[in-house]
């Protein structure tokens, strides 16, 4: 079997918005709308939620030039493209962080539980992928939801050896339907990132 080397990653750089969210960058008239701008496209099933947060560097300063992508199952635990998945939900979101506050926001639905290949279920979660100037390889992490009894048996959370770090993957219920998930790239509160 041929095993070709994967093409090397490089940083997305500070101008990632030109290519990935050109309308956000002020380059209008090329694409109708930025890719991933809407995750909900119609009468979606499930609980609508807002996921928001900021990404902090090792000095505690929010990144204002990052781009975050979200990929998740629908309320029934199915990913877009799977048989029976919600036709009004794309599962994919893309957000350029706010150029002043660094905030990212996704208007989405709370995902359902999804199966684990070796059996059992994974707790509901949203995968986030983070790229920015200074990040040489995009960072994968997961957002879980507070108070969910399934957190106890989630197979990925169960792999985290340093148990104090589990809470870095659990969003905070800010108010009704709004979850905050702050990401720390480096330091004492460093978020768990995955080599998937």
């Amino acid at each position: 079997m041929n095993d070709l080397p994967e093409t090397a990653s490089q940083t997305a750089g500070p101008y990632v918005h030109i290519g990935c969210t050109p309308n956000f960058a002020g380059i209008t008239g090329v694409y109708d709308e930025d890719l991933g701008a809407r995750m909900i496209t119609g009468d979606v099933s499930g609980e609508r939620i807002t996921l928001t947060g900021q990404i902090f560097d090792g000095t505690g300063t929010p990144l204002r030039d990052a781009m975050v992508e979200a990929w998740q199952a629908d309320a029934g635990g199915l990913y877009a493209g799977q048989d029976g998945a919600d036709p009004h939900f794309t599962g994919f979101g893309r957000c350029a962080c706010d150029q002043d506050s660094g905030a990212f926001t996704f208007e989405t639905v709370k995902p359902g539980a999804t199966p684990w290949p070796q059996g059992g279920m994974q707790a509901p979660h949203i995968t986030l992928w983070i790229v920015a100037r200074g990040i040489n390889l995009g960072l994968h992490t997961r957002v879980y939801f507070p108070g969910d009894p399934a957190l106890e048996t989630d197979p990925v959370l169960g792999r985290i050896e340093h148990r104090v770090r589990v809470q870095t993957l659990i969003a905070e219920a800010e108010k009704d339907g709004v979850y905050r998930f702050n990401i720390h790239l480096q330091g004492a509160d460093e978020t768990v990132f995955f080599d998937v």
């Binding site: 877009a80 493209g81 799977q82 994974q122 200074g134 990040i135 792999r159 790239l185």
Partner: peptide, 26 residues
């Protein structure tokens, strides 16, 4: 590459076998 100094995680990334969320995409 100076910006990488404060934007690089220090802990090792955690590995796990891919599941549907990693094997599917938009």
């Amino acid at each position: 590459y100076r910006t990488s100094v404060k934007r690089s995680p220090q802990a090792a990334p955690l590995s796990f076998p891919t599941s549907m969320g990693e094997e599917s995409g938009p």
